[in-house]
């Protein structure tokens, strides 16, 4: 078990290392240079000497690999550099400030998706071929195909602009949460409901379910103790793997609702060519995905005694 954990962590670190090189490389290839980005029009009025001094100050005169390792060293110690656009503001402050709204948004969405999708998928499987089952399946197929940014716009038009029930954007009291949380949860709910139904159907066809019924157990006990517990196993894996999708989703959803989180910070930073911030967010997101994947694997091993990690 410990060997496996260490192995997974090492693998994670290698992947993280590759991700950081890739990110760094991509942003190195970006047109324009940071000094010009930061100074905007003012850059043209700089003398060559000033310019060189600025380059030197930020270590931009060094070869790329040296820059990379300096950046990596700083990153590991929690120093993400300074914003090139909001001059002098440390990137980690900007990211920390935006982190809490994003954590709230993603966890509430995930909770909503799980609470709706699992019972729905379960009941659909138990009442297979019923109207309820067809309804759930139609809704799940639709939920996967719906572009969430469009649903967001439609909700804003209907609930905020037309009916005036909810605020169209921004953070604040509980009313601000409803639309972003729901919109981010749409795709997850559909995916999970479909998966839960499939897992449940597979489990219900197993011999031990027949055995449990033959023993004369009440249907409720058969479903809850024997079927659901086993059907949940594959779901755990998928919830972990959806982390990457959820984070992608925050970029779009936060942008539509002007939610003051990391996704919005990411988009504004991309548009302002504030690459220090972009870089920090990309690497941070991948750390989250990798950690989520490792935690998922371990959880899976703990709750499923059949799995022997090696």
């Amino acid at each position: 078990m410990y060997r496996y954990v260490i192995q997974r962590l090492l693998q994670g670190i290698i992947v993280l290392f590759l991700v950081s090189i890739a990110t760094f490389g991509i942003l190195q290839a970006a047109p324009g240079n940071p000094v010009e980005t930061m100074l905007g029009e003012g850059a043209t009025q700089l003398t060559q000497e000033d310019y060189d001094r600025l380059l030197q100050k930020w270590g931009l005169d060094k070869p790329w690999y040296e820059q990379y390792f300096t950046w990596l060293g700083n990153f590991v110690t929690g120093d993400f550099g300074q914003s090139m656009v909001r001059a002098g503001v440390p990137v980690h402050e900007m990211v920390l400030e935006a982190a809490w709204p994003t954590i709230q948004l993603t966890s509430l969405s995930l909770a909503f998706a799980i609470l709706v999708a699992l019972p729905a998928g379960m009941i659909a499987a138990i009442r297979r071929y019923s109207i309820f089952d067809s309804g759930i399946m139609v809704w799940a197929s639709a939920g996967i195909a719906l572009p969430n940014f469009w649903v967001g716009l439609m909700l804003i038009i209907l609930l905020a602009l037309y009916l005036g029930w909810l605020p169209p954007s921004g953070g604040g009291d509980w009313k601000h949460y409803i639309m972003p949380v729901f919109v981010l949860a749409i795709n997850e709910t559909a995916v999970l409901a479909r998966l839960m139904r499939g897992a449940m159907l597979e489990v219900l066809g197993q011999d031990y379910i027949t055995t449990a019924r033959a023993k004369g157990l009440r249907e409720y006990v058969v479903i809850v103790r024997h079927a659901v517990r086993n059907a949940l196993l594959p779901i755990v894996t998928v919830v972990g793997l959806r982390m990457a999708f959820l984070l992608s989703g925050t970029v779009v959803v936060e942008s539509i609702f002007a939610w003051p989180g990391i996704g919005q910070l990411f988009i504004t930073s991309v548009n302002r060519s504030d690459y220090q911030v972009v870089q920090a967010i990309v690497v941070l997101f991948t750390v989250l995905v990798i950690v989520a994947n490792i935690v998922t694997d371990l959880t899976y091993a703990i709750i499923d005694p059949r799995i022997r990690l090696n």
Partner: peptide, 24 residues
């Protein structure tokens, strides 16, 4: 496989946005 892991560790849309912004 490590290469595949690396790409899968990126949230896709985030990677695409970054690439698109850099390439133009």
């Amino acid at each position: 496989s490590r290469l595949v892991d690396t790409i899968m560790a990126f949230p896709l849309l985030v990677l695409m946005i970054t690439l698109a912004a850099v390439i133009g």
